[in-house]
Amino acid sequence: MTSVRDIPTQRVGVQAPPAARSVRLTKVFGEGDTRVVALDAVDVAFRAGQFTAIMGPSGSGKSTLMHCMAGLDAVTDGHAHIGDTELSSLNDRQLTMLRRDKIGFIFQAYNLLPTLTALENITLPMDIAGRRPDQAWLDTVIDTVGLRPRLNHRPSELSGGQQQRVACARAMANRPEIIFADEPTGNLDSKSGADVLAFLRRSVMEMGQTIVMVTHDPVAASYADRVLFLADGRIVDEMLSPTRERVLERMKAFDRQPEA
């Protein structure tokens, strides 16, 4: 078995132009005694049309990586790119526009505005931008998530799984270059979770969507094309065509070697 440190991270995704990439991305929280290096000079690229899962133990920096890549958090050092855009050069307004137009988000919970119907939630990013949604695409997305009969319901009238599917549809509806999902199935039972994951998988296969998903669930990770493993702010391993068993096996390695 290869040692964690032997994996050359530079090898990751170099052939096709990536949808997003980072260059020596570093994020430090706090100062002095409370100084914590959450990301330690991470180089990573997410190829277009690929479904990537980021895994790692708690505190490994996987959420921070996603936040920095998605323009939700500022980096301490290094660079994050969405397509050709370098994020640290953008001001708050430009970042907002970038998130609105090029990125889709799916959070663990509280994804929806309780005052809006499912349909209104789905078209919200376009409404904010003052754009008309592409009706044909919208229909495709809605049919893919299978929510047509519930479009006029409010979130409180939907099950947790349905709510997450609405969140997925919202992330897709704007045809973003990349979707970031933060534990999208963390709050769901296994059946609903499987529905959501199947939908994400299909959107990559059939619509060529790029998705980056942070998860700690090996089952969720097995839906991805590729799994990146983070530990202590560094990418320590990569796995292509993952299965639940292999991911589980790899994760156990973290438990056995609680190293630095």
């Binding site: 939700l72 708050d92 307004r93 907002t96 526009m97 998130r99 609105r100 137009d101 988000f105 959070f107 509280y110 994804n111 505005l113 309780p114 919200l124 990013p125 904010i128 931008a129 919202r170």
Partner: peptide, 16 residues
């Protein structure tokens, strides 16, 4: 607060 964070995340700017 959370709702506002969500709105900001999906692209609502401060002015809006």
């Amino acid at each position: 607060t959370r709702e506002i964070g969500l709105l900001r995340a999906i692209g609502m700017d401060r002015r809006q």
